[in-house]
Nucleic acid binder design. Structure first.
Length: 203
DNA sequence: AGCACGATTAACT
DNA sequence: GTTAATCGTGCTC
């Protein structure tokens, strides 16, 4: 019998590219005032190590990026462009800075709450960007560093008995928004996107 | 100074 | 219906 199981630290301690790929089809869950807001992860990006010049860790440890150097499975959340929060989950072994950026989800629960925050936009635009997810699920810097592998965490990821809830076919492409980043990092295909087939109506 | 972005607008097909 | 261009915003380094 299949059941929803919270992803554990072992999952996130794997290579960042594997984690980014394997998160596709898993379910991101936000517990807010006892209610669940959740959705299937359909787009991620890998950021891996100080040598990756697209990664925040390229300058070494700073106040902002220090949780990326910590224990895998923790949330690395930062603020950018003056208005947007971004959600990442830390990967690989402690001391090696790496994380997966959650870029898009397909909403499954809590659409009544999300509508209050994103209702000024059509439903297809509610969670199809990293800043939009954080607005929809009310994820802000107060969750920076929370352990997504702890029980009763306000933020975690579920599998379907260790499997994704949907087996998407996945395409890769360069990461988004790295304008001034040198090659090969600018073009390396570390972005993972679920293909919009599988009769999954993206609203 | 430079962002791991999003909403709007303006051109397209 | 889509794609391209623009720029607000405030925090980090």
């Amino acid at each position: 019998m299949k059941e929803s199981i919270q992803l554990d630290r072992n999952f996130f301690s794997q290579n960042t590219l594997s984690v980014a790929r394997n998160l596709i089809g898993m379910r991101l869950v936000r517990l807010e005032a006892g209610k669940r807001i959740s959705g299937l992860i359909i787009e991620t990006e890998a950021y891996r190590g100080e040598m990756d010049l697209g990664c925040h860790a390229k300058t070494g440890m700073t106040q902002r990026n220090r949780v990326m150097y910590g224990v895998p499975g923790h949330a690395y959340i930062y603020f950018t462009y003056g208005m947007h929060w971004m959600l990442n989950i830390v990967t690989e072994e402690e001391g090696f800075p790496a994380a997966v950026l959650i870029r898009a989800i397909h909403l499954q629960e809590g659409d009544d709450i999300v509508k209050l925050r994103r209702g000024n936009q059509p439903g297809k635009n509610w969670c199809n960007g990293p800043g939009k997810i954080c607005q929809a699920l009310k994820i802000t810097g107060v969750f920076n560093g929370v352990d997504c592998c702890e029980s009763h965490s306000p933020l975690f990821v579920e599998s379907n008995s260790g499997e994704p809830f949907l087996h998407f076919s996945v395409t890769t492409s360069p990461r988004v928004g790295l304008f001034k980043v040198p090659e090969p990092w600018k073009s390396i295909a570390w972005r993972f996107v679920a293909r919009a087939e599988n009769n999954l109506k993206l609203n």
